[in-house]
């Protein structure tokens, strides 16, 4: 977990090649913006929304990996469970969307705590592959429960009317909900940052990541904090699930897709670095949405139609390959947990 000073140090070590690459990226983006300003802004905001959802999912994953050394594959299932629970809160219980935004994450957090106490607690200190397999099993169970209870057909809920309107940004009109989602995600990320950097709870968590045994030696009851972190991580994933599915609907494949992307975000950002997860989530979200637009603008400018590749789903992995080639520990990673 980086403090702000450290990130400044890390930035200072960025090589000239990176600055050159950044310059090329800026030029490409500028060209694209000049060619198709409306589409550009649309997709930039779409990417930001996607990136923010990724960050929310990744925060919990990253905290759980850092503190407990657990590779929690079930994190995607928490994300999906949040989405489906919000459907029940809105459609079955008839409560407003706002209630789902609070209740569903809390319920997912409770599920996380139950799993921590009954299963994961026994895996601390074991090989990461053990926790990966165990949480993979939990993922299967949660997903099958979701299929059995909610069915396999895509579902959706209606958003509050305030958020269904559009907001005019000059060159284009974007759905207000997208701006709402970005705003709420930013507030959540800031709250998590303050929790980790400014509170005693955060201090014990940071110490626990660095040396769990010594943290116990100074009198901290770390197991209780592990459970609390698991609640927080699961609730954040559930929260992201509610926010995301309110726009796109609920699908039984969403957990799988997002947990893999979240691992990509963790690896690109650097394991153990919350700041890295935030930067990497936004980077991956925005580049996934903007790359096809940039390519289509390039195709238009150079009159080479084959350049307009639809590679949105491929971009996160391309970003990962590129970053890892140059920084094997990710953007802000200090030491690898899996080395």
């Amino acid at each position: 977990m980086n403090t702000t000073e450290l990130t400044r140090e890390d930035l200072a070590t960025v090589s000239p090649a990176w600055w050159a690459a950044a310059l090329v990226a800026v030029v490409l983006l500028a060209v694209t913006f000049a060619v198709e300003p409306g589409l550009f802004i649309d997709q930039a905001i779409g990417g930001l929304v996607y990136g923010m959802v990724l960050v929310l999912v990744t925060l919990g994953l990253s905290l759980i990996l850092g503190l407990m050394g657990i590779v929690n594959f079930a994190h995607g299932a928490f994300f999906m469970l949040g989405a489906y629970l919000s459907y029940s809160v809105v459609v079955t219980l008839g409560l407003p969307f706002w209630a789902a935004l609070i209740l569903a994450p809390l319920a997912v957090g409770v599920v996380g705590v139950v799993l921590e106490i009954t299963v994961l607690r026994y895996l601390y200190g074991s090989d990461p592959i053990v926790s990966l397999l165990a949480t993979f099993g939990l993922t299967m169970m949660i997903e099958e429960v979701i299929r059995a209870y909610w069915g396999t057909a895509p579902l959706e809920i209606s958003r509050p009317s305030v958020l269904t309107r559009g907001t005019d940004l000059g060159v284009t009109t974007v759905p207000t909900y997208r701006l709402f989602l970005v705003g709420v995600a930013v507030l959540t990320i800031v709250a998590v940052y303050l929790l980790i950097s400014r509170t005693d709870f955060g201090l014990t968590v940071r110490a626990g990541v660095q040396d769990g045994e010594m943290t116990e030696f100074v009198g901290v009851n770390l197991p209780v904090r592990f459970t609390a972190m698991f609640f927080l991580g699961a609730a954040l994933a559930g929260f992201a699930g509610v926010l995301y599915s309110a726009e796109t609907g609920m699908r039984t494949t969403m957990g799988e897709t997002f947990v893999i992307l979240a691992f990509v975000v963790v690896v690109v950002g650097g394991i153990g670095s919350l700041f890295g997860s935030v930067v990497s989530g936004i980077l991956i979200g925005v580049s996934a949405y903007l790359t096809p637009v940039v390519l289509s603008a390039l195709a238009e400018v150079t009159n080479q139609p084959w350049l307009a590749l639809q590679i949105r789903d491929l971009v996160p992995y391309l970003v990962m390959i590129l970053i890892l080639l140059y920084r094997p520990r990710g953007l802000f990673g200090e030491e690898g947990f899996l080395e």
Binding site: L203, T204, R206, A207, Q210, M214, V218, V220
Partner: peptide, 16 residues
């Protein structure tokens, strides 16, 4: 704790 400051190292013990 390598990535905690002097004050944070000591405060952790004080808090608990």
């Amino acid at each position: 704790f390598p990535r905690l400051s002097v004050v944070e190292n000591v405060r952790l013990a004080i808090n608990h």
